[in-house]
Structures are given as structure tokens and as C-alpha cells.
Write a protein that binds this DNA or RNA. Structure first.
Length: 413
RNA sequence: CGGGGUGUGGCGCAGUUGGCUAGCGCGCGACGUUUGGGACGUUGAGGCCGGAGGUUCGAGUCCUCUCACCCCGACCA
């Protein structure tokens, strides 16, 4: 991709009012644009990152048996009245159809849609367990949207729903899901600072679990056992004041962003919809459910918050919008050849072909945060080739074209 | 929902006790000179000052209402 052809543009000017780092960097670099408070456009560059994040999640959910589907975001009020949540969920967008005057909701969670459809296909113990997930735009009527894309009124989230014959089977799958989540966060580049966290809210079990990523801008306070790498959310510290794994009381307090949340729902939703199956003895039983969420757009914001430096974003290799950021200082002809050659090798290149000063181009390469920067200039050509630099390292080296291609490919293996 | 702030060319901002033709930086167009850390010269285009109503000879500036956005708090992935 040629920089000059991108739909978006970079900017130096951003309102003083914007305080959150992810908001500032993502807007200045042209990844996202704000339409209103808590509602963002994912521009072509930003959508590439978001899609990569979602594909990682998609792969790992498929790996643990999840089948992808797509549920509606627009729901009839009736389903929510059935579960009682029409009255209790404050952040549900409720409205009336202009024409028919029926009550509708634009939703941020999907039990009211998945259970009625699951009921049509789950009839016997032979139909269990089942795991389905979707990645979709959610709506929540936040009292106050904040922190860029970390807390939006419209945001992207993966939610997986599991259906089991009994609690024991749910427990089994729950552990499998925890492992899959760990793998997702590792691939997102934040695995080392994302902790399984015990939290309140189990309607069925004593605790639910969250995945909390350490960050000063996080809204949650957690207590981490550094030995077990397991944490406790402050909301339950009264009832659980020692490490749930090793019972140590040496816990480190820190701020964290909730990047994932998993629940044992039990029969909370199968009951109102009467989701029952026949067991081997021909007796009816309620299906037992689990619910597993990861906010993909929030994950994107989190990555920016925790991995950036003063110059800009530092994308982990698996989520970067392009493999390499090519900067030419003069030398347009040579740059164009290299750009074409790299692309022929299957390398996704963003070439900053704009007529900008050296300083500007280099500064924006840092802001954009693509893992590999390649500079072509008089200086590099005299030294025998092209300058290769990783975004998160200061070291540079001059490589000829073959070595450069090899080096880039090796990096992404 | 409570508290604090901000709305002025595409973006970021200034605009004095109401007074002449509303400025500046960035960006954008043209021409030229530049290229290893946010270059420069010449020149040009681009504004019902968020919206509505009012006060006044005169409103970006004062008053009322309203809409939007940002920050803090409570609530939430």
C-alpha cells in the first residue's frame, strides 16, 4: 500500500481535550476516527488491526470446538422481558419502532438471542455439548464513554456460549477455555501482563473470572500473586483475601484493564426459555451454560496503551496492519522497485511515498508502529543496501535485498 | 446522573471592558529549493464564529434556551 493512496491521513494536531494515549495515537496515525462519544469509525488501517485481532480470537475459539455464527444485535423486547432483564439491565438501548410502536433493544449481550435458537437444535443429551461464538458489534448505553476505544457505547466483542448436560461438563470446558484465552492474549502480545483474575458475579459458581491486563489507565484494581500469576479483583477482596492457588497473602495491588470475562451461567437462561434436553433415561433436564467474552476493540486499545512508547504505537507482530513500513528519503525509483520486490515475496508493505521531509516520515513510522522499518536513502545505498530496524529496538543494520527479504520473513515465522 | 470545562476555515488554537475588513499555527493548491528525526521561500484557496431566540446604533464577545464533545465521580466488557 502506498501511503499517499490511504483513505486516512496522519495529523499532528489533536485536541488538548484528548487525554487517553490510545485515543491520541490511534487518531493521529489514522487508525480510527471518532463520530461521537464512545463511537468510533475503524479506518482502513485500524480495521486491518482489528481484523487481525479478531482472527486470532476466531482461530483459538475454533481450536476449542467453537462454531462461529452471527446473532442479531436488534432484539424484540419480549425475549428480554422473559429473562427479566428488560427491567434490570441499565445499559440496554431500548426504543420503540417508529411505525409499529413495538419495543425493541439494541443489545450488548446475547443470551436472549442464542438460547431461543439453541432450543431448536438441542433436544437430546446426544446434542450436547455445543459451543458457538460470534464476533460482533455490541451496544451499551454507557453513562460515560471514556478512554478512547477502551470504553465505547458501540464496540466489538467476541462472545462464546457453551451448552452442557451438567455442571461437571461445564467445569471441564471452562478450564479448556481458560487455556485458550491465555493463548489469545499471548498472541496479542500482552500475555505476560494479563492475569486470570477471580471476580464476583457467578450466578452459579462462587466466582466468575476475568482476564485483567496490567495498566495504569485500567479501571479495575486487582491484587496479583506474583508467584502464581493469578489475581483477585478488589470487588471480592473481602471474601477472598489470599491467593486462590497458593493461599499466599503477599499480593501486589495494581490497576488493570478487563480484557476478558468468563462466566458459569448455569441454568439462569435455559430456565426462562425452557431449554431442556432428554437424558439417557428419557428424563428432561435443563441445559447448563457458560459464557465467554473478549472485547476485541478494547484489546486493540489495550495493546496501544501498554506497548506504546513516547513516539507512538508498537504493534505486536501478529496484529500489525502491515509487515513492513518502507520509508524512502529521496530515491523514489529505487524505493518503487524495492516496494514491488517485497510485495512479490508476499510481504505486506506500507510505503510512505509522500513528499515529506525525512524527519516527518521517520516520526510517522514510529507513530504508526509497524514492527519493521526499512529505510532507503543515499546513505543506505552507499553502505550497500537498505536499513532494517525493529520498532521496539534502537539497533539498525544495512542489508542487501535478499538478506532483507529473508530477515523480514524470518521475523514473521 | 452529579461536578468541571470546551464549541471560531479540514485540524489545533487566539480573539482585551461589545466597535472598523475575524487572526495565528498545521494541513490543503501552484511554482521553486530541500531530504537521516516533525525543512524553507513565493503565492493562493478556504469562515453565517455549534444552533435558536433576545438586548443593542452595532454581538465571536452580553442574556436565555438548546445541541454536541472532553475531563473527574458514581455505574459497567
Amino acid at each position: 500500500m502506498r501511503f499517499s493512496k490511504l483513505f486516512s491521513k496522519t495529523t499532528r494536531n489533536i485536541s488538548k481535550e484528548v487525554e487517553s494515549k490510545n485515543h491520541e495515537f490511534l487518531v493521529r496515525a489514522g487508525y480510527v476516527d471518532q463520530l461521537m462519544s464512545g463511537v468510533y469509525t475503524y479506518l482502513p488501517l485500524g480495521l486491518k488491526v482489528l481484523s487481525k485481532i479478531e482472527n486470532i480470537i476466531r482461530e483459538e475459539m475454533s481450536e476449542i470446538g467453537g462454531e462461529e455464527l452471527l446473532l442479531p444485535a436488534l432484539h424484540p423486547a419480549g425475549n428480554w422481558k422473559k429473562t427479566g432483564r428488560w427491567e434490570t439491565v441499565d445499559d440496554l438501548y431500548r426504543f420503540k419502532s417508529y411505525y409499529t410502536k413495538t419495543d425493541l433493544a439494541l443489545v450488548g449481550t446475547h443470551e436472549e438471542a442464542i438460547v431461543p435458537v439453541a432450543k431448536k437444535f438441542i433436544l437430546s443429551y446426544k446434542d450436547l455439548p455445543k459451543y458457538v461464538f460470534q464476533i460482533q458489534t455490541k451496544f451499551r448505553d454507557e453513562k460515560r464513554a471514556k478512554s478512547g476505544i477502551l470504553r465505547g457505547r458501540e464496540f466489538r466483542m467476541k462472545d462464546l456460549y457453551s451448552f452442557h448436560a451438567d455442571e461437571k461438563d461445564l467445569d471441564r470446558y471452562y478450564e479448556i477455555a481458560i487455556k485458550a484465552y491465555k493463548k489469545v492474549f499471548e498472541r496479542l502480545g500482552i500475555g505476560d501482563i494479563t492475569y486470570l483474575t477471580f471476580a464476583s458475579g457467578g450466578t452459579f459458581s462462587k466466582f466468575s473470572h476475568e482476564f485483567q491486563t496490567k495498566s495504569p489507565v485500567g479501571e479495575d484494581t486487582i491484587y496479583l500473586c506474583e508467584k502464581c500469576k493469578v489475581a483477585i479483583n478488589r470487588e471480592i477482596i473481602e471474601e477472598q483475601s489470599v491467593c486462590p492457588e497458593c493461599e499466599s497473602d503477599k499480593l501486589k495491588e495494581m490497576k488493570a484493564i478487563e480484557t476478558g470475562n468468563i462466566f458459569k451461567l448455569g441454568t439462569k437462561f435455559s430456565e426462562p426459555f425452557n431449554l431442556k434436553y432428554l437424558d439417557k433415561s428419557g428424563k428432561e433436564n435443563l441445559a447448563v451454560m457458560g459464557c465467554f467474552g473478549i472485547g476485541s476493540s478494547r484489546a486493540m486499545g489495550t495493546i496501544v496503551e501498554v506497548l506504546s512508547d513516547v513516539k507512538g504505537i508498537v504493534w505486536p507482530k501478529e496484529v500489525a496492519p502491515y509487515d513492513a513500513h518502507l520509508v524512502n528519503l529521496g530515491k523514489d525509483k529505487e524505493a518503487e522497485k524495492l516496494y514491488n520486490d517485497l510485495q512479490k515475496e508476499g510481504i505486506q508493505v506500507l510505503w510512505d511515498d509522500r513528499e515529506e521531509s525525512a524527519g516527518t516520515k521517520l516520526a510517522y513510522a514510529d507513530l504508526l508502529g509497524i514492527p519493521i522499518r526499512v529505510v532507503i536513502s543515499d546513505k543506505s545505498l552507499k553502505a550497500g543496501g537498505y536499513e532494517f530496524k525493529l520498532r521496539n529496538q534502537e539497533k539498525t543494520e544495512i542489508l542487501d535485498e535478499n538478506k532483507l527479504i529473508k530477515k523480514i520473513k524470518e521475523y514473521y515465522v
